[in-house]
Design a protein around this nucleic acid. Structure first.
Length: 573
DNA sequence: GCCGTTTTCGGCCCGACTGTTTTCAGTCG
């Protein structure tokens, strides 16, 4: 069984949990969590790195000891240290830590005093009112534990960005109805454009005498109030999404924005730069010996540590600070750079709208071209095109193109990559097309090697241009299929093929990390909506967020080019 | 457990809010 980076992340986080409960040195605990985070953000499989004899200690936060533990996990699938800890304590304790309000200290007390080591025993003890008498606990804590177990909200998955956007917009509109609000920004992972968000962090500055907190908790979608203070309050909405409001003074707005935008790893890295210059950086500003040096704008904060402004999407401590120090930050792509959409469907197959409607919507966006890429015959449920119907679509597009002025409708297909790597339609008809997009829609469960070979074989066909939704994952719904994405990206570089960044809110595939891999390997990316209706053409903005998180500039993206330039690039010789 | 322009020891980010206390530990972000 192949060991994934996520297996290592899980093992290390579990070790950290149990060490914390045992009361181990907190910095030792942090070392495990830091290493887990480092491994989690790698684009390459650690198992592959070990096979290639790459020393894992090259990665920051991984020393000799943890490198050996990673090798053990890769070789044996388990970590003896974790086994021993779970035997010493109990594997059920991990679940207890996930309950809001229970941290390592409280779990330790529950375990030692009452022998509670899993959710059922915790629930029983709470019901029997045994918890309230423990030192540091009380009736309210006991009631809250019981409520959390019954609510089960702590097991909930993260909210997709596009859903968070809708919620955030309404909440911000509501907050603005209070006239005391001056500035307002939704910070956190939402502002960084992450594909999912855990909660919303809203930052405001207000006029003197404002009672914004009362207004905040009075919102009609609030299900319950977690906390309410002078500068910070937290609520949970009916949807289950947590929203925090922070009121910050005007002079500290930039510092607070930086602090609450994160990511945590980025903030720590910036604060460490500050420490070297004897600067203390927190949400109130940048201070030297209690004297305020900056805080009004984010730019000022960065300036104090000799950095240019870093865009929120880059703030993950994945090299942006080093790039900023060398003045080599990317000039990130913007929505306005996009000149066409290279992957859309019509009602000829499983789309909702007609070809004509899709074209006029694209023209409304001032695009220069739109590729009509319906499914091929193998996707029966979508009434995919056979050779005959594709030929008819080609004729129709040729006819329409004579009367569209400068706008060009591109003849395209989303052709299925069959199990053996052949394409679902014959080469002679595919050659007639402007763009051939290949995609996997079946046989997701092939082995990693077979799946990789299948797609490589498809890319070997000289008609092949773009690999659609390369990992096949659906956010919160389906894991990516087993495939060596890095190998596929290398292969695209060798063959003159391209990768898609599918902008559908459920896909966002390639993800940020692999977008950067593609960029580093010189493979251009098509940011495409895969729209099945006129409305979905708007998903382009989601693709742009993901592209920016992947460090992409306009030049890295295929569809920032004019059709003339694009046509040349698509020619495989 | 990691790390090093303070380099093999002694640091490691920091503040708000809650509940349980009666001055603060624990949790969270």
């Amino acid at each position: 069984m192949p060991i994934h980076n996520s297996d290592i992340v899980e093992n290390f986080n579990k070790v950290a949990d149990l060490l914390e409960i045992k009361g181990a040195n907190p910095f030792r605990v942090r070392a495990y969590r830091n290493a887990a985070r480092t491994i989690g953000s790698l684009s390459k499989s650690v198992a592959d790195l070990i096979a290639e004899d790459r020393p894992l200690t090259d990665f920051s936060g991984i020393g000799k000891d943890l490198a050996e533990k990673i090798e053990e996990i890769v070789k044996t699938g388990t970590l003896s240290q974790l086994k021993a800890l779970e035997k010493d304590l109990s594997p059920g304790l991990h679940d207890l830590l996930r309950i809001p309000g229970l941290g390592p200290k409280k779990v330790k007390t529950l375990y030692e005093e009452l022998g509670i080591d899993d959710l059922p025993s915790l629930k029983k003890a709470a019901r029997d009112q045994k918890i309230r008498d423990l030192e540091g606990f009380g009736a309210r804590t006991e009631a809250s534990i019981l409520a959390e177990i019954e609510r089960h909200s702590w097991g909930k998955s993260r909210t997709k960005w596009v859903i968070a956007e809708e919620i955030a917009r309404s909440y911000v509109d509501y907050l603005r109805k209070d006239n005391s609000v001056k500035d307002i920004t939704v910070a956190g992972s939402y502002r960084r454009g992450q594909e999912t968000v855990g909660d919303l962090d809203i930052l405001v500055t207000v006029k003197r005498g404002s009672d914004i907190m009362a207004h905040f908790v009075d919102y009609e979608d609030v299900d319950r109030i977690i906390s309410r203070g002078e500068t910070r309050s937290s609520v949970v909405l009916r949807t289950g999404l947590q929203v925090d409001l922070r009121v910050v003074p005007q002079v500290a707005y930039g510092a607070a924005l930086h602090y609450f935008t994160g990511s945590k790893a980025h903030n720590i890295a910036v604060r460490k730069l500050g420490q070297k210059k004897s600067l203390k950086i927190n949400e109130y500003g940048v201070f030297k010996n209690d004297e305020r040096r900056a805080g009004k704008t984010e730019k000022d904060v960065f300036k104090q540590v000799n950095l240019p402004y870093i865009e929120p999407e880059l703030r993950e401590d994945r090299g942006e600070i080093q790039a900023a120090q060398k003045n080599r930050l990317p000039d990130l792509i913007e929505l306005a750079d996009i000149r066409g959409d290279l992957h859309v469907h019509t009602n000829e197959t499983d789309g909702r709208d007609t070809l004509e409607d899709m074209v006029s919507a694209a023209q409304g966006k001032e695009y220069a071209y739109l590729a009509i890429s319906n499914h091929s015959q193998h996707v029966g449920i979508a009434r995919g095109l056979d050779r005959k119907r594709l030929a008819r679509q080609i004729e129709k597009i040729d006819r329409l193109n004579t009367k569209n002025g400068n706008f060009v409708i591109l003849k395209a297909i989303e052709v299925d990559i069959l199990k053996d790597g052949s394409l679902d339609l014959p080469d002679d008809i595919l050659k007639e097309l402007d763009v051939v997009i290949g995609a996997v829609h079946s046989d997701f469960r092939l082995s990693r090697q077979k799946q990789t070979e299948r797609i490589l074989r498809a890319m070997d066909n000289p008609v092949f241009n773009i690999l659609a939704h390369p990992s096949g994952r659906l956010i919160n719904a389906r894991e990516p299929y087993e495939v060596d994405l890095e190998r596929l990206i290398e292969a695209a570089a060798e063959r003159g093929c391209f990768m898609e960044l599918n902008a559908h809110p459920d896909r966002l595939d390639l993800n940020d990390v692999f977008c950067k891999t593609a960029k580093d390997l010189g493979v251009k990316i098509a940011v495409s909506t895969d729209a099945h209706s006129v409305d979905s053409l708007d998903h382009m903005r989601l693709g742009i967020h993901q592209a920016r998180r992947g460090w992409l500039e306009a030049d890295d993206v295929l569809n920032t080019r004019s059709w003339r330039e694009l046509k040349k690039i698509l020619q495989r010789s």
